[in-house]
Amino acid sequence: MNRSSFRTRIAGSPYLVWAALFILVPLGMVAYYSFTDQSGRFTLDNMARISDYTGPFLLSIWLGLLATVICLIIAYPLAYLIANSGEKRQRTMMLLMMLPMWMNFLLRTYSWMTILGDNGLINTLVTAIGLDPLKLINTRGAVVLGMVYDFLPYMVLPIYTIMLKIDRSLVEAAQDLGAGRLNVVKNVIFPLSVPGIVSGVTMVFVPSVSTFYISQKLGGTGTLLIGDIIEQQFQLGETSLHVGASLSFVLMILIFVCLTVMNRFSDSDGSVLV
């Protein structure tokens, strides 16, 4: 038994070392760079510079929230419909939901430029019927649309998975006791699907808040998000890494706080995530 537990320790040790070196130490690096200057001296200057970027921070959170809520509103009925359809149809629908996720998201986002552009497909159609062209691209709406488009499957999949796990007999019991369809959804299905909603919301909100590609392509210069700023600091080279680190640090804490608050609403242990 002792030898076996020794072997267990050996089996786990490469990962423990790896996780320490490449998960924990890099986070320490973010903290270290946030609070030091070029020569390695302690400073609060980088943190103070954060206040210059309050606008992008607030805009990121606002657009991220908007995209998350829209995804939830669209995805919930869809997940319900899929979970309650026949076996063959479920399989097909899951395939159709997952297929876009496997395509390169840069190109999927880019092709919205073809659709929304000033001379794009929609505007070609609009002008063809004699209306003035619409301002679609380079707006906040376009950025939210891009986020919803890119991350919608991440909302559908966990909600669908949790709905499959709901015990049918509970639904039948509610119906036997005289609950209508709306009541069944409200009092049985919805409460039981909260863990799926929580992981869906997480999987949409986190990448939406921190995106930089979607805002670059669909938002133009008017929608500078926090991801854009961090990416800019990276491009500017080594002197800007300290400010970039402090921005990452704050972003990380912000998301951590959001997730903790959200997890309060559910008893999920995160096991629905995969």
Binding site: P26, V30, P207, S210, G227, L241, I255
Partner: peptide, 12 residues
């Protein structure tokens, strides 16, 4: 967020 993971590894 991926951007933080990437940035942190780059700093390392």
């Amino acid at each position: 967020p991926d951007i933080v993971t990437g940035f942190a590894l780059m700093l390392l």
